[in-house]
Simulated scan of single mutants.
Amino acid sequence: MVVIHYTAMDSAQEALQRLCDPQHEVSAHFLIGSDGKLWQMVREKDRAWHAGAGEWHGQADINSRSIGIELDNRGDHPFAEPQMMVLERLLTALLHRWKIPPNGVIGHSDMAPGRKLDPGSRFDWLRLEHQGLAKPRGSGELPQTVELPEFINLARKAGFTANVDDQTLLNTVRLRYRPWATGPLTPHDLTPLIRKTGSS
């Protein structure tokens, strides 16, 4: 899989120094600056220390089965157009080279709910989905009613299998699909998780 992060630092150079400093025990395969500059720090076939504890679709040890991409962004502003264009080109190449399905492109928060928030509420997941670079959200009909067990079941089927409490799970799914949403569970929280009959 591919895990997308934001650096939460003030500059790409600052992030680069951190990611290349053995003292910090953190690394990633790629870093993309806000201006679109691309650095590769770890070979794709090698393990990088970018994900930490977490789970996606029942698989743990994400570091051993993923490529980590860091984006120069503090998490409080939109991602720059040159940066997104380079990310799209990189993802296209990685998915083809490693035969990664769109469902394998996730945010750090998806696999580490409650512990991580990146790439955050300002990241444009729909943009990637429209290009086949991330799994498209469900387009099923809006349910008339909603029950928590149904939401949990749908979320786990979608890949959110980390062991967290119900509220953290809701917050995590919303961060990916409806970052503006607040308050109790609603039918709109289920819609992105519902696949049309006959769709994969």
Rank of each mutant, 00 (worst) to 15 (best):
V105T: 08
M1F: 13
Q40F: 05
A80D: 06
Q59V: 07
F160L: 02
R178N: 06
L148I: 09
H57A: 05
G33N: 09
I106K: 03
V173W: 15
L71M: 04
G159E: 04
Q40Y: 12
T191L: 12
D124F: 00
W98C: 00
R43H: 12
A181D: 01
R74V: 09
H188A: 13
I69Q: 04
D110P: 00
G75S: 07
M9H: 09
G114F: 07
L128F: 08
L16E: 09
E129K: 11
K45S: 10
G54L: 01
Q144F: 09
R176N: 05
I4E: 09
Q40I: 01
V2S: 09
L95Q: 10
L16W: 15
S121E: 15
L175F: 05
A15P: 04
L193C: 02
H57M: 03
W180Y: 14
I4A: 02
G75R: 11
A12T: 03
P101C: 13
P184I: 05
D21G: 10
D166A: 14
R156Q: 11
L71C: 02
Q131R: 11
L71Y: 01
N153V: 08
P102N: 03
G54V: 00
M111Q: 10
R127A: 05
W56V: 00
L91A: 07
Q167T: 11
P78F: 13
L185W: 06
D165Y: 14
E44Y: 07
G68P: 03
G159K: 13
H57Y: 05
A134F: 10
S11K: 10
L128Q: 03
H96M: 13
W39N: 00
L175H: 08
P22S: 14
Q144H: 11
P136A: 05
L117C: 02
D61Q: 14
E70H: 14
Q59T: 06
I67H: 09
G52Q: 05
K99F: 10
G75D: 05
M84F: 06
V164F: 04
N73D: 12
